[in-house]
């Protein structure tokens, strides 16, 4: 598996650290109901198909990446910088 880091280009999977689902980018606001926090922390989809998750380019540019990939075909649809998304 190779990821195309927007800054560093095509890199081997071993340069990256896996964090988890995209859900971690959507932290509930302060005072949100418990069900929302429960969802944020524990409830994950496990799709056979398109999945978005977070990877860290620890052996390269030290950026968090949002990777859209397909768990069935192993196709990597896109790799975005989390930092650029927030702008």
């Amino acid at each position: 598996m190779r990821l195309k880091c927007p800054l560093c280009g095509d890199r081997d999977r071993r340069e990256f650290y896996y964090y988890g689902a995209e859900d971690y980018l959507h932290r509930p606001a302060e005072g949100a109901p418990l069900a929302e926090w429960d969802n944020y922390l524990h409830l994950r989809d496990n799709p056979a198909g398109v999945l978005r998750d977070l990877w860290y380019h620890e052996a390269g540019c030290s950026q968090w990446l949002l990777v859209t990939r397909n768990t069935v075909t192993h196709e990597i649809a896109s790799v975005e910088l989390v930092a650029e998304r927030a702008k």
Binding site: C8, A59, G60, C61
Partner: peptide, 10 residues
């Protein structure tokens, strides 16, 4: 310039 690893050193 590349940021990568030499053996396991960044």
């Amino acid at each position: 310039v590349l940021r990568t690893q030499v053996s396991h050193m960044n």
